[in-house]
Nucleic acid binder design. Structure first.
Lengths: 146, 146
DNA sequence: CCTAAATCGTTTGTATGCAAATGTTAATAA
DNA sequence: TTATTAACATTTGCATACAAACGATTTAGG
């Protein structure tokens, strides 16, 4: 015989080498770092929605979800909680009875600059294991994956 | 005066450049790919727990959580659902009344090889935007981040 | 004009994910 | 040996995250 009856797999399957698993770990680490900074009581998801509102201005709820990469059900919960905190408000849209326009309140708008400052620190701390070259390489690869 | 009164930030803060945001997007993409493959009705989280059980053999619930990088509350839910599916079982641990031992059922054990095959495809498809060199570089950077 | 398709917001159901608190049991230190 | 500490499993509460279905409204095609 020229070969064994049991053919071994080309390589062991190691969970720790799988991109999905390691992505999950990286996310966990980032979440921990995020929560250790002062982001005015916002979660990372709420943070994203706030910054998108600041970036794009008032828009519909579903549009904000698309800007922020959130499902319609997810963005609804996020907007509800931001409204409870008094950071965003909603007004009906004249030309379309289906939708309403969401925008930052003055309280929410006043918060943006501080959020950006915190965000810079969070990104910096998250990428701390890298040197400058690795940092840029990593972000570029990550964006290529999206 | 040698400088303006308003000092512009060194750089704009762009959400799309922040590691946390892009990590979230990468995770979303991986989840979508995962769910498009046949993993016998398992979620990615359940998949991880199953493979860890196969790798380490029977262990306590909290230990399995540590192996799989899951909180005690999270691993409880995962184990509960795997038990409902008949893929794992629990037996009391003689020497310690606090813990019970979790192990794969024969049905669960029979599933492992297929899960690994699916897992290989999922990782390959997730990393498809990369060439071979980028692939390895990315995984290494990602692991360095953890 | 009118029907079919698309969009908007909402709701329900399932599954993470983590903080915090609880009760039980085991190990350790005084 | 007793008191403290630690580990285990469970539970509650909150916040994503997404699929699927729903009614209302708008748009587009015939």
């Amino acid at each position: 015989m020229t070969s064994d009856t049991t053919i071994p797999s080309q390589e062991d399957y190691l969970l720790d080498e799988q991109v999905g698993y390691v992505l999950r770990l990286a996310n966990q680490r980032h979440t921990t770092i995020f929560q250790s900074h002062d982001t005015s009581g916002l979660t990372a998801t709420q943070f994203s929605a706030m910054l998108r509102l600041a970036q794009y201005g008032e828009c519909s709820q579903n549009q904000l979800g698309r800007y922020s990469a959130m499902d319609v059900a997810t963005i609804k919960g996020v907007v509800d909680r931001l409204r409870q905190k008094g950071l965003v408000c909603t007004k009906p849209f004249q030309n379309d009875k289906r939708r309403s326009l969401i925008s930052l309140t003055s309280k929410g708008a006043a918060m943006i600059e501080g959020l950006e400052t915190a965000g810079r620190k969070i990104t910096k701390e998250t990428l701390a294991p890298f040197n400058a070259s690795e940092r840029q390489k990593f972000i570029n690869l990550l964006k290529k994956l999206t």
